[in-house]
Structures are given as structure tokens and as C-alpha cells.
Write a protein that binds this DNA or RNA. Structure first.
Lengths: 235, 235
DNA sequence: TAGATTGTTAATCGATTAACAATC
DNA sequence: TAGATTGTTAATCGATTAACAATC
């Protein structure tokens, strides 16, 4: 049975919809804090930065949780989206690699928010092991498998150097983890059934540069840049 | 004239293709370092983690840079993709917000890679201003407009707290910046023509949790979770 | 020439959007 | 009832993929 890595449906929620549910949830939480009881698709869509047709289509995949002529009950919708995303249970997260980025992630408020709990910080550097960061003791990478099993870690965040990422990925997968958030700038190779999401800062910058360049081309009257391989460049 | 924010084509390169070009570039750089002269679409696609049909389709949007029966010249393709992405010029980047994340970004090697140069680090906290990070002096946020104009900053990275992000975005847009990489967990509102890319750690985690939950449902025989709003919950 | 591999075609699939009937 | 707003339909658009003719 061949299945592609990121399997879209199960109870049939499109991947594009799943990726937007967290946005709706965040907007709804803000409304909840401000004491709003109900919200229309128009207002919620605006707060989340999408158009209202898309929002209604997305929510329709979860069920019929709105009321025609009225809108959506804020608290009820928060609950339904949270449940759909699996945030009504508690996920133990391990962060591997406690350099600048790992520290930033450990201290990032959004991480410890609803549904997630940092269960371990691990690093290979003896100088870092033993440090206290965000209320946690940094443990040695040798403890990786033990920590994963004993603390029920189901999501691992890779904030290691690029050179170490594949090796750590192999180990966490062998230990049974099937969800990895990868900050290392490498393409990880993992078995089918393991979900990887990748956050890549330099890729985001490069995409911005592409669009920025187009804007500048436009402003300078689309000055035709040399299309040819410059003669001077040494191959 | 109404145009959507992220305008896909100009010389007609699909947005999905643009987002993959950095992956190809990274794989090609690795091959260049290992001394490979040419590469087939099959091998390059494998290294980048996509299928070869998609790779060839993507590259065909840039031009005909391959040789049938042979493959692609590694150095030549690096040059063509770099040029397309605008990496043959130098982009001055300012990082606003020098907390844990801002420090991590400033020290992140990929940032200072080909095409990008950190031109300024800015923060509002007087205790942070004056710190030396990654060889740069942290400057006060009051200098934002001056720094942007004098140093030709064209890309701003927002690593501020969520509460400050919109205000800073307004200021950098007013100063003429049209490309923003936003790490703050808020939906920024910006005028048409300003490109925003968003990196959101908690959203990535939530998407992973969704898939993880599905896998667990499957393993436990799809144990039907309560679909209904629990009676006990207090609205 | 024979073998290899690109660039393109065309079919398919998934996502977006406007419009509106259903219904509160 | 009249007004408001959802949930769904259907059209459109863009992305993916396999297959293969072109051609080195």
C-alpha cells in the first residue's frame, strides 16, 4: 500500500483547511477574551485575514456549528476547532538542540500554550547540559530515547545544527515519534507515516527577495536584466 | 485597480514554484561543494525532496537550462536560480526585536548567507540597546526610520512581542519597506503591495497535533470521540 | 546510432470564490 | 414577517503528475 507522506484526509478535512484552523482559533480566543459571545463569518474571516467564503467552507468541513442569521457561538467554535486540532489533549514536546534557537523556542510563550507542554530540553554539548532554561533542566542527548519513552513525548522539535538533524531524526523515529518540527535547513529522510513540518528562515527570506526584486523591476520600468550567463563568471 | 496581496506572476512564475526554488538552490549548493558538474532532474529532485516531474516543470518556468540526455550544469543552474530569486544582489535586512528569537535570528548562519546582510538590530528596551550581538550594535527603535533610509533596508524581520508588531509594521511601511518577515503571532494589516511572510511556531505545532491525533485515532481503532459539546462545560 | 534525459502536454486533482437557497 | 447570515453549489483557477516526443 503506497501512501504519500502528508496524508490529507481521514474524516475528510483538506490540508489547506487544517493549516488555517489555528488562525481561526487564535482570532476566536482574542474575541473570547474581549467577551464576544457570537461572531459572523464576515468578522471572524476579517480577523483571521481570509475571506468569508473560505472561512465558511473551512468550517463546514468540521460540521454545522453556526446559526443562520446569527453567526457562530465563540466559545462553542473554540471548543470544536480545539477538539479537531487535538488540543483538548496534552502533547508532550521535546526540544533537541539548545542553542540560540532552542532557547528562544523554550521561552516562546505560544509553545506552552493550550495543548502543548515542553517535556524535555536536550543537547549534546556538556557545557549546556545542566543549564536551567524556561524552568527546565537541559539533559544530555544520550537520554533521548529514555526521555521520549518515559515522558510520552509525541512531538519533537529539532533545533540542532544541520549536520546533526538527520541523525537525531533517525533516533527519535526509532523511539516511536511520528511528528517532527524541523528548524534545521536540511531535507530530512524519514519513513512513511512520519509527519515533518519544516520552518526555514532563509527560505522565507529568499521568497521575499524574489517579490522585492519584482517590485523593483516594476519601479525601474522593468529594466531588462541580463538574461545570459555572464561571460566573466568562472565555471 | 484591485490586486490581491501576493501577486503570483510577473514573468509568470507560479507562487508554488517560487517557494521551491530555494530548496533546489540549497541542494545544488551542496552538490557544487561536493564537486558535481552536472545533475539529472531525478537526482536533484530526490535531494530536494520533490518528484522529478515537478522539478522539471518548475525549472521550465525559468527557461530551458538543461541539456537533454545529460542533465543540468550545477553552477549554471545555481546562477540562474539565484538570479531569479534576486540573490545576485545584496539585500539589507533589519531585525526588530532582540529578545531570544531576535538573537537567534541574528546568529543564524543561513541569514547572513548569500544575498542577505543584517544591516541593523533594533529594540525598544534600554537594557538591550547597546548590546553587541553577532558583531552588531543593538540600536534604539527610535532610530528605525533613519536606519531604514540611510542603510537602504528593504526587508524587515519582526521578532517583537505580539503587542508591538502592528505598530512597528506601520512604521516600517511608512518608511517605505515593502517586505516583512513576521514572527509575531498576529495577523498584520498592511497596505496593498506590501509582502508579508509569516512564521508561526504554534501554528506549526497545532498542525502536527492534528495529524498526530489522527494517527492515534487510527491505532486505537478510530475510537469515536465525543462529537457533542460536553454538558459540563460552562458557556 | 542507442541510450539518456529534458521540456511539454494533457489529464487529474485540490483549492478558491461568488452566488444564493436555506433558515434562523 | 423582514433581515441577516449560514452552508452548499458550481464555476474557476492553480498545482500536480504521468507520459512521451524531442533531442542531446
Amino acid at each position: 500500500m503506497i501512501r504519500r507522506l502528508s496524508q490529507p484526509r481521514e474524516r475528510g478535512i483538506p490540508e489547506a483547511t487544517v493549516a488555517r484552523l489555528p488562525l481561526y482559533l487564535r482570532a476566536l480566543n482574542g474575541m473570547s477574551e474581549r467577551g464576544l459571545a457570537t461572531v459572523s463569518s464576515e468578522d471572524l474571516a476579517h480577523a483571521a485575514g481570509v475571506n468569508s467564503a473560505k472561512l465558511r467552507k473551512d468550517l463546514s468541513h468540521l460540521g454545522s456549528y453556526g446559526t443562520r442569521g446569527v453567526g457562530y457561538d465563540v466559545e462553542y467554535l473554540i471548543y470544536q476547532i480545539s477538539r479537531e486540532l487535538g488540543l483538548t489533549q496534552d502533547w508532550a514536546v521535546a526540544i533537541v538542540g539548545v542553542g540560540n534557537l532552542g532557547r528562544a523556542l523554550a521561552n516562546y510563550g505560544g509553545f506552552v500554550s493550550r495543548g502543548f507542554r515542553i517535556a524535555a530540553l536536550l543537547d549534546a554539548d556538556p557545557d549546556v547540559v545542566g543549564d536551567h532554561i524556561a524552568g527546565l533542566n537541559v539533559e544530555h542527548i544520550d537520554e533521548l530515547e529514555t526521555v521520549i519513552r518515559q515522558r510520552g513525548v509525541s512531538i519533537v522539535v529539532l533545533a540542532t545544527p544541520a549536520t546533526a538533524a538527520q541523525q537525531v531524526a533517525d533516533r527519535v523515529v526509532a523511539a516511536g515519534v511520528t511528528s517532527i518540527l524541523n528548524f534545521a535547513p536540511v531535507v530530512l529522510s524519514v519513513p512513511e507515516g512520519v509527519d515533518i513540518r519544516k520552518v526555514d528562515l532563509s527560505i522565507e527570506l529568499q521568497i521575499l527577495a524574489f517579490h522585492e526584486q519584482r517590485k523593483m523591476d516594476r519601479m525601474t520600468g522593468g529594466a531588462a536584466m541580463a538574461e545570459e550567463w555572464p561571460e566573466a563568471v568562472d565555471l
